[in-house]
Amino acid sequence: MTEQRTSGQDRPHPHLRVDREGPVLTISLSNPERRNAKTPSLWLALAELAETLDPEVRVVVLRADGPSFSAGLDLAMLTPEGVDGEVSMLEQAARGAQEMADVIAPFQRGFSAWADVDAVVVAAVQGHAIGAGFQLALAADLRVVADDVQLAMRETSLGLVPDLAGTAPLVHLVGYSKALEICATGRTVHADEAVAIGLASVAVRVDELEATTADLVSALLAAPEPALRELKPLLRRAVTATRDDQLRHEREAQGRLMHALVTRPRH
């Protein structure tokens, strides 16, 4: 992958475009002719972007070209022909259950690694966000959706389960029962419901999605950088930490911030 720059554009994958403007990195799914259907090589490229993210980046925006965020896995991956240049899912599955699980592990990092970066990750989601597309939206810290959004987990209808790090954030956001119902039925969650159940922060008209996302990014950048960098991991840990551990995380983060405030040079 090419080195990330203070400003400019890269293409770490034929179907990914990366734009850098100062502290903001925008990652665009860029295969609109296929509704941004995904392949494993794209997931690996996403993982590398997350794991090599410039520490100077404060906000990452995940977005997509065209009318759909992502229709999910390119279903040709589940055919005997597969997709040129991609791992054969059927061949790997035929070798054994553990062998298939081992193949999936690095693909999951394209989704789970965004929770580990210091930057706040915002997904701007329009149109179809199905399966792997839905799970990429769930990989973000915040989601802005267009009023035409169609979120769906269709894996169960194929005899599979969501396996790209989407199950934990979905349960944390909407609760076990609602998550089970959404995944088991494969039904569509539209914009109003997504906001009502906590999947999205706000729903706006399609033609307002870019501007609303930009406003959110500006608000995030306006927050003091050290505080925001402490806040993201603090809140993420709160989901699974014990009460005593979370209290410790709070006071330790506050201690670092207070120390920095009182010892920084004054002009």
Results as ranks from 00 to 15, higher is better:
2 T>E: 10
3 E>A: 04
8 G>Y: 14
9 Q>W: 05
9 Q>I: 11
10 D>T: 11
11 R>W: 04
13 H>P: 12
13 H>E: 10
15 H>V: 02
16 L>I: 03
25 L>C: 13
27 I>G: 03
29 L>S: 02
29 L>R: 00
31 N>R: 15
32 P>C: 12
34 R>V: 12
35 R>M: 08
43 W>H: 14
44 L>P: 04
45 A>T: 12
46 L>F: 07
50 A>E: 02
52 T>S: 15
56 E>Q: 15
57 V>Y: 02
57 V>I: 15
58 R>Y: 08
59 V>Y: 12
66 G>L: 11
66 G>E: 07
70 S>I: 01
71 A>N: 07
71 A>S: 12
73 L>E: 09
84 D>H: 09
85 G>K: 01
87 V>Y: 09
87 V>H: 12
92 Q>P: 00
94 A>L: 03
95 R>C: 09
95 R>W: 03
100 M>D: 02
100 M>T: 09
101 A>H: 02
107 F>G: 09
107 F>T: 02
110 G>M: 03
111 F>D: 05
117 V>F: 07
118 D>S: 15
119 A>I: 06
120 V>K: 05
120 V>Q: 11
121 V>G: 07
124 A>N: 06
124 A>W: 06
126 Q>K: 11
126 Q>S: 14
127 G>T: 05
129 A>W: 03
132 A>N: 09
133 G>P: 13
133 G>A: 13
134 F>W: 04
138 L>E: 13
139 A>M: 07
139 A>C: 13
146 A>E: 00
149 V>N: 01
149 V>Y: 01
158 L>M: 14
159 G>E: 01
160 L>Q: 06
160 L>H: 05
161 V>R: 13
164 L>I: 10
165 A>L: 06
166 G>W: 04
169 P>S: 05
170 L>K: 10
171 V>I: 15
171 V>K: 13
173 L>V: 05
176 Y>N: 09
178 K>C: 08
178 K>N: 14
181 E>G: 05
182 I>L: 15
186 G>R: 01
195 V>N: 00
202 V>H: 11
204 V>D: 03
205 R>G: 15
207 D>R: 07
209 L>E: 00
209 L>G: 01
211 A>N: 07
213 T>I: 11
213 T>D: 06
214 A>I: 10
215 D>W: 06
217 V>N: 01
219 A>V: 09
227 A>C: 05
233 P>K: 07
234 L>H: 00
236 R>F: 10
236 R>K: 13
240 T>A: 15
244 D>Y: 09
244 D>Q: 14
244 D>K: 12
245 D>L: 09
245 D>E: 15
255 G>H: 11
264 R>V: 03
